[in-house]
């Protein structure tokens, strides 16, 4: 990621009122994680799998603070169980920011399943999402994801792809 894209993500998170970020690092967002760690207004929590991160974000919601789950899109599959339980069973929202592995241009065989499954999994869970490929749209997309999550009390997701992450 370019520094300008990292800055746009952090601006979006701050405009949305996020103060806690749970993450499991990946390669496409490699530059984002240390920037989040270094930001004095954001507490980062490293998790052992993305499902655990989703549950921690759900707990943060209950505290009145705002959290984000940042991950590669493969983490969506690891999060399906807690997302289904919290979202459909209790109305506890989690906002996700994920890197889009397996999109057009992908050159790793192991990332192909991530691209094949991401949108169908989001659709199966009825999670509203956007895929952004232009840096100029990042900040507002993140703000909008929080607006909807806090109106619906349901999850939303922003996937970043294209030149943003390559």
């Amino acid at each position: 990621m370019q520094q300008s894209a990292v800055d746009a993500v952090i601006r979006g998170l701050k405009r949305a009122g996020v103060s806690i970020v749970c993450y499991l690092p990946d390669s496409l967002f490699k530059e984002l994680y240390p920037a989040l760690d270094a930001d004095p207004d954001i507490r980062t929590i490293r998790v052992t799998n993305e499902g655990e991160g989703a549950a921690i974000c759900g707990g943060v919601f209950l505290s009145g603070k705002r959290a984000a789950l940042v991950m590669e899109n493969s983490g969506l599959r690891a999060s399906v169980e807690p997302l289904a339980r919290m979202g459909l069973g209790a109305g506890i929202p989690v906002v996700m920011l994920m890197s889009y592995r397996g999109d057009m241009g992908e050159n790793n065989w192991w990332a192909v399943p991530h691209g094949v499954t991401m949108e169908p999994v989001l659709q199966a869970l009825r999670i509203p999402y956007v895929v952004e490929r232009e840096e100029a749209r990042i900040e507002q997309a993140i703000v909008d994801a929080y607006e909807l999550a806090y109106a619906s009390y349901y999850h939303t997701a922003v996937a970043l792809s294209g030149s943003i992450v390559r």
Binding site: I20, R43, I45, E52, G53, A55, I56, C57, G58, G59, V60, F61, L62, S63, G64, K65, A67, P82
Partner: peptide, 11 residues
């Protein structure tokens, strides 16, 4: 426990 930890982090 993850939810409880998230709540603890927020409060």
């Amino acid at each position: 426990t993850p939810q409880a930890f998230g709540l603890a982090a927020g409060l």
